[in-house]
Simulated assay, not measured.
Amino acid sequence: MEGSFLRFYLRENQRHRGKLLWEWLLEQANRMGFRGGSAFRAMAGFGHHHHLHEDHFFELAGTLTVEVEFIVTDAEARRLLDLLREEKIRAFYAHIPAHCGVTLPDSDDVNEPEAAPGQKST
């Protein structure tokens, strides 16, 4: 399947409509019928202000990044990005083309036949 890898980088304590933004984003994607999504908390990192944040002290609670990611169709990615614009949410994201599939797929899995290494599947 051809689609998109869509990842958002959010502040751990960032909120929207009274909810943590990473939680709100997962809920919205679920309501839109996405097949899945995940949130991961960073151990350390820095952003555009070049200030290093590490998960060592209680005082830093809420200053680290949460990555929220989805493997989606291009149409799903556009719908979610449009929703964030409509809700006036400022968030950094990466939107990358992705080829994905399932090994040993079930009958309800969307999957392309696997090609031999170096060959493109049809």
Rank of each mutant, 00 (worst) to 15 (best):
G62S: 00
Y93D: 00
A61G: 07
E54K: 14
V66Q: 13
V68Y: 06
F57D: 06
L64P: 11
L81P: 04
S38G: 09
L52S: 07
E23D: 10
F40P: 04
A39N: 02
A44S: 07
R15W: 12
A42S: 08
H49M: 06
L26S: 04
L20G: 10
A98W: 12
F70K: 11
R11C: 06
D74W: 02
R11T: 03
L84G: 03
F57V: 10
E87F: 06
F8G: 00
L20T: 01
I71R: 00
E59F: 12
Q28R: 09
R90Q: 07
R35V: 13
D74Q: 05
H48F: 12
L64H: 08
V68I: 08
H50F: 04
F46A: 10
R78P: 05
M32L: 07
H53V: 14
I89Y: 01
R31F: 02
A39C: 08
H51V: 02
A42I: 06
R78E: 08
D82Q: 09
F46D: 01
F5Y: 07
N30D: 13
R79F: 09
F40V: 11
E54D: 08
L26W: 03
T65R: 01
E67F: 12
G62W: 03
E69G: 14
R7F: 14
T63F: 09
F57G: 08
P97M: 04
A94S: 10
R15Y: 11
I96Y: 01
T63L: 08
L21G: 07
R15D: 00
G45L: 00
F92S: 04
A29V: 11
L26N: 10
L80P: 03
F8Y: 11
P97C: 02
A42R: 02
W22V: 12
G33A: 07
F40C: 14
T73G: 10
G33L: 05
L26M: 02
H50N: 07
L20N: 04
G45F: 15
R35F: 03
M32I: 11
P97Y: 00
H49E: 10
K19S: 13
H95V: 14
G33N: 05
E69R: 13
T65A: 03
R31G: 09
H51L: 04
E87Y: 15
R78C: 14
H51T: 10
L6W: 00
E67M: 08
H53Y: 13
G101K: 01
H99W: 04
L60M: 06
L60T: 03
F58T: 11
H53D: 04
G37M: 05
H49D: 03
G62K: 05
G18E: 02
K19R: 14
Q14R: 01
R90C: 11
Y93R: 07
T63E: 05
H95A: 14
E12F: 01
A94T: 15
L81K: 12
V66A: 01
F5Q: 05
L10T: 00
E12H: 00
D82K: 07
L80D: 03
A44N: 09
N13L: 09
N30P: 10
